[in-house]
Amino acid sequence: MDCKSCNKTQLTPFFCSCCNVLDISYESSDKFETLGLKKSYELDKKDFEDRYLTLSKVTHPDRYQDLSETQKTKILNLSAQINGSYFSLKDDLTRAQLVLDHLISDGMALDKKSLPKNFLFEILEIREEMDEDSTDDDRLEEIESEVEGLRKSTHKEIEKIFQELTKLNVLDTNHLQDVQTKLNTISYYDRILEQIEGKLDD
C-alpha cells in the first residue's frame, strides 16, 4: 500500500514511517497485514522486532494524553491489535498455523484435524504415566522434559518442511498437510505440559 502524501510504500496499511501519517481507525483481523508483512512462515527477525518497536512507539496510549475519549479508545484498540499480532507471529507455531489458515480460506483442501497414526495411544500412555506418578515431583519433571523434547523435535520438523517448501518455491498440499498434522500434535503436548505444571505447583 502506498502512502497518499509521499507515494512510497507504507510500513503497514495504517502507518507511513516516511511522513509519520497514522490512521488510528485501522482495524483488521489479519495479523500479517497489521504489521505490513507478507503471509509466509519465513520471518526476518530483526526487521520484525524493529517494526514492532516502531509501531509501539507510534501507537502506545502514553503518547496520546490529550485526545478525546473516542480517539483514546481507537488508539488503545490499535495498540492492542499490534501487540496481539506481534505475539502471535513471533511464535513459530502460531505463525505456521496462521499461514495454513490463510491457505485454507483461499481454497486449499487441508484436513485441519488430522493426527498421525497411533498418536492418541502415545498420548494416552503418557497420561497414564502422569496419573500413576501424580504425587512424585521428580517423576513428573522427568515426564515434563520428555514431552518438552517431543515438542521441540516436532517444532524442528515443521521448520524443516517450510525450508524445503521455500526451496521448491511451491505450495505443496502434501507438505502442508504434514505441517498441519504436526501442529495438531503440538497442542496435545502443550496441554500435557500445562497440566504437569499445575500438578507441580500443588
Binding site: 514511517s17 511522513c19 509519520n20 501519517v21 497514522l22 490512521d23 488510528i24 516502531t54 512507539k57 507510534v58 503518547r63 496520546y64 490529550d66 485526545l67 478525546s68 475519549e69 473516542t70 480517539q71
Partner: peptide, 25 residues
C-alpha cells in the same frame, strides 16, 4: 469545545504526534 476540537483534529493527531517524535522514530 475541547471534545469537538479533539474530534475535528483527529486526522491531525499523527501530525501533532510526529512533530515531537520524529527524532525518537
Amino acid at each position: 469545545i475541547v471534545n469537538t476540537l479533539g474530534d475535528l483534529t483527529l486526522p491531525l493527531a499523527d501530525l501533532l504526534f510526529s512533530d515531537a517524535t520524529k527524532q525518537a522514530l
